[in-house]
């Protein structure tokens, strides 16, 4: 791990064809995401958002790996990219989780019933 791939003395030059392929893929996915958004999925209409996010993630991954050279980069950059995504997931996930959880109504009567039914003497 002494020197990264992009060290000054030996830059890693990605072939032109790779860039053009990635570019073409990004275009295809752009058309795909618009198309998917416009078609009628019927009872599966809720899939629109997950599908759109999935396609966006694929596009972002293409950009990160090839345009931003992470594929050829050091392990350290990988670690930080993954850490950043994990932290973003924590922020979004836990916050949205709170809002989802607010719709679950706690049922104190059920707790009371289970407390009444429990035999606490066994604990002592």
């Amino acid at each position: 791990m002494s020197h990264d791939a992009h060290a000054a003395d030996s830059p890693h030059i990605v072939p032109l064809s790779v860039y053009l392929t990635i570019f073409a893929l990004l275009m295809v996915f752009t058309v795909l995401t618009v198309w998917v958004a416009l078609i009628d999925l019927g009872p599966y209409g809720w899939l629109h958002t997950p599908l759109a996010l999935l396609i966006a993630s694929v596009k972002a991954t293409l950009v990160v790996l090839w345009f931003m050279h992470v594929k050829y980069g050091s392990r350290l950059v990988w670690v930080f990219v993954v850490a950043g995504l994990a932290w973003l997931a924590l922020l979004v996930g836990i916050t949205v989780g709170d809002y989802v959880g607010r719709t679950w109504e706690p049922d104190p009567h059920a707790w009371q019933a289970s407390a009444d039914g429990a035999d606490f003497r066994q604990l002592g």
Partner: peptide, 21 residues
């Protein structure tokens, strides 16, 4: 660019999908 890749479906396509679906 990546930020836009996410903003585009989140903002624009949501309405289109909902309108069609």
């Amino acid at each position: 660019d990546i930020v836009w890749i996410f903003l585009f479906p989140l903002l624009y396509l949501f309405g289109a999908g909902a309108a069609a679906g």
